[in-house]
Amino acid sequence: MKDVEMKMLERAKALLESGEVARVIGWKKGDFCFDPAPASFETVEELDNFVYDYFCGANLSKYLIQMSKKEGKTAVFLKPCDTYSFNQLVKEHRIKRENVYVIAVECMAKLDIEKIKAKGISMVESVEVVGKEVKVTSAYGVETLYKPDVVLTKCATCTKTHQVKDEEIILHERPARDVDRFEEVAKLEAMTADERFAFWREQLSKCIRCNACRNVCPACSCVKCVFDNPASGIAAKANDDKFEEQLFHVIRAFHVAGRCTDCGECSRVCPQNIPLHLLNRKFIKDIDNLYGEYQAGETDEGKTPLTSYTEGDAEPNDVMNGEAK
């Protein structure tokens, strides 16, 4: 990963120095090795803080809504999963494609510090990844973990590939894997309605309405969110019942249905570890079953299955009965 970072830095410098781009969106070092954060770099000097490692899981595509409106071009580093969000936002006319220079970068699955900490390791100082081994150096010594145990949930079932690139920095190919991203959804489907209601009620009861999921979600990019709009008549209802408030997540899932690329950022940023991505994946699975397989963000044009009608579409009663196409 160090070699990839070097190459990215080299390109970022060249692009800024030549004036080809006005800024580069990437990740900057945090206080610790495990908390790099998205950042915009406008000068070569600022790049001193640039970092790209196994903790750079954040999806940078949403920042381009604002950045692509600015003067001059914006270069951005996009991992495979981020490119789907990028395409979806271009399709919805939120990103000005002509103002963006996309550098596709390899991913190799990112690590989840929460999962590392859950292994009983605290005061992490540095992390080194060799193949499937993760060597974690902490104040208490060095421990070796099995990588698939500590990758981000969104990375565990990822099979995505770059959908858009103006250039690429890929020094190592990620080996192909056979994973089923709907395994967890199938478990929920197997529950009775009462069990499922209890499951979500419990999960959503943890919500503190910090709005991190909404703020990070590339599909949640409304100029004015309905939940922030007093005229929508939703705000006051939330006070009636605690669970009604938490239905926020269900409404949000409906709003992004057919547009969600399954980038998994919602679950990654949730401080309460609510598996929010499962709501979206249920919609994705249903759309696949009812209207044929569809991956949002695979292209930057065309209609989504939920906003188009074709003669082969499932009849409403098929939808009611959840019958596959």
């Binding site: 399709k91 919805e92 006319h93 939120r94 990019s221 409304c222 100029v223 004015k224 709009n229 209609k303 989504t304 906003t307 188009s308």
Partner: peptide, 21 residues
């Protein structure tokens, strides 16, 4: 207009071609 994202979803579903941007 203050709330419109310009995302084109409404134009996609409009059966009459009544929506432009």
């Amino acid at each position: 207009e203050m709330m419109c994202n310009g995302c084109s979803q409404c134009a996609n579903v409009c059966a009459y071609g009544a929506i432009t941007y």
